[in-house]
């Protein structure tokens, strides 16, 4: 497996569904943050077969873990300090997510109504299923 050096201070977002790293990269706006980032795509995983990992060296404040959970409910977040894991976090799923996910149903009102608040509600917490508040289409994480 590809080797990326360990972190001294930062977070590792692990168990991202393979192919999902860029969505999380984009949500966290990592492109515009003064941190070092390593994205590992399609890493081998005993549990998942393949997974993505994001390693972030530096201070990350204001990360809403719950929102990350809505984007990918299986992820884990390891907090690293002085080179060791000091905390392991599992996101809980928020009941509602606003203006993060967008409905992909072309028949949904959110595709045409200006200024609408894109809202998804959690309808199946076991499988992490979110449905659009307006058209009830489930959010497709692909």
């Amino acid at each position: 497996m590809l080797n990326i050096g360990g972190l001294n201070q930062g977070i590792v977002i692990d168990h991202i569904k393979a192919g999902g790293a860029m969505k999380i990269y984009s949500y966290l706006d990592l492109e515009n943050k003064d941190v070092s980032v390593a994205i590992i795509k399609n890493a081998k995983s005993n549990k998942m077969g393949k997974k993505d990992i994001i390693k972030i060296e530096g201070t990350m404040e204001d990360i809403d873990l719950d929102i990350l959970g809505a984007l990918d409910h299986r992820i884990t977040i390891n907090v690293i300090k002085d080179g060791v894991i000091v905390d392991k976090k599992f996101p809980t799923l928020p009941e509602r997510v606003t203006n993060i996910l967008k409905c992909r149903n072309p028949r949904c009102i959110t595709t045409v109504e200006p200024g609408i608040v894109h809202t998804f509600k959690l309808t199946d917490s076991r499988n992490g299923v979110y449905r659009c508040l307006y058209c009830e289409q489930s959010f497709d994480r692909r």
Binding site: R107, I109, V112, I116, Y134, C135, E136
Partner: peptide, 8 residues
């Protein structure tokens, strides 16, 4: 014709 318009 758009789904969810009445809710809006």
């Amino acid at each position: 014709p758009k789904e969810g318009a009445p809710l809006v």
